[in-house]
Amino acid sequence: MDLSSSPQDAYSFLNGQLRITRDEVMQRCAPRKGDIVILSGTLVEGIGSKHSDLDAYVICDELPPVRHVGDHSFIIEQNGGLRTFVDYIRDDGFAIDVEYYTRAEIQAMKDEVQGLYRQARERTKTLRKKMPHAYEDGLHKMQVGIALTGGDEFASLFSADFWKQMSFVQYRNRTGGYPEFKDVMGTWGSGDFDTSLLVCTMFLMDQAAGLCHLAGSTNGKAKWVMQNLKRLPDPLRPLGQDIIDWYGSAGRSAEDRRAAVLSACDLVARIYEADTTLLDADTRNFYSAEEALHLTQQEFLTEPFHDPQTVLEFEFRRLLFNSGTRSVRELLIQNV
């Protein structure tokens, strides 16, 4: 859905099946003077369904007092103030989820992202440290939302570079993961193609999610990866569709599953090639492939032991930046 970033009198979703007015949102949020109100959620993002809720975020100086807001409200209180409430606003179960964050809390969320971003730029090993889920989800929904009040201040709070840096952190959380790839190699080599297909499916999902993040999505929920793949920029959309098609391609026999794992390796290689292009296109906010390979080599030299598994891990990590003497498929086949 293409909703204007400017506030309107009313918002319609799912071809008019769901509708809410700006006044109704404001009445539910009850903002104080100077508060920023943001309407968001998967419906606003364009990937929701008739069972989705709307989300509203209120950025304020302090949490408001707890109050009863509707006939069916579910309220969460924190530190003596109202943190969030969910209320049904239609007889069919359509609900709005309103969350309150202070400006100080927003700054803490931004600081968390910036701290992780600095770590993400220093190495190439998968970044296992993630931002708290509430931060990731809240920030994402603010990014895709519409500021109903305080639009100028909201725009000043979050620069375009900030969103790129957040997506880079998410890319670094999801992409790579040699222990996970080693699970694919181990199960494939032992002939357990059922388990190999399962762990390969999870591994491919993470690599696909990383690509979506690097392409600009900050939606960190795994259940939306398919929708995010459909919304990739035009040059990457055929790859996104091929990944989606792969998920329905595995047959029942062991040979079918074996073939599916090998074809997934080829898709992973294409993802890493696309990642490299995206990295090189924005060296202001991402490291370039050349810089990443240099960091990888530095990390390899500081390893205390260059045993076979360590050598294999770093060979795999070079593939993330479209470099190496073997493909992902060859790495699997030749190291079972």
Rank of each mutant, 00 (worst) to 15 (best):
A155E: 14
S156E: 14
S156I: 00
S156H: 10
L157S: 02
L157T: 03
L157W: 15
F158Q: 03
F158E: 04
F158S: 04
S159F: 08
S159V: 08
A160D: 14
A160S: 09
D161V: 03
F162Y: 13
F162K: 01
F162R: 01
K164W: 02
K164D: 14
M166A: 13
M166W: 04
M166D: 01
S167N: 15
S167E: 08
F168N: 01
V169W: 00
V169Q: 03
V169Y: 01
V169I: 04
V169A: 05
R174Q: 11
R174S: 14
T175L: 11
T175V: 13
T175Y: 01
G177W: 00
G177L: 01
E180L: 06
E180W: 05
E180N: 04
F181N: 01
F181T: 00
F181L: 02
D183T: 05
D183C: 01
D183N: 07
M185L: 02
M185C: 06
T187A: 06
T187M: 06
W188Y: 15
S190P: 00
S190D: 13
S190V: 03
G191T: 06
D192F: 12
D192G: 03
F193H: 13
D194C: 06
T195C: 08
T195Q: 11
T195D: 11
S196W: 04
S196M: 05
L197S: 11
L197M: 12
L198R: 12
L198P: 00
L198E: 13
V199Q: 07
C200A: 15
C200Q: 13
M202C: 08
M202V: 11
F203D: 10
L204N: 10
M205L: 12
D206G: 12
Q207M: 11
Q207H: 09
Q207C: 09
Q207G: 05
A208K: 07
A208D: 10
A209E: 11
A209M: 10
G210K: 08
G210A: 11
C212N: 10
C212Y: 06
H213N: 15
L214V: 12
L214N: 13
A215Y: 10
G216N: 07
S217Q: 07
S217K: 06
N219E: 14
G220H: 14
G220A: 14
G220W: 08
K221W: 10
A222I: 12
A222Y: 13
A222R: 13
K223V: 14
K223S: 15
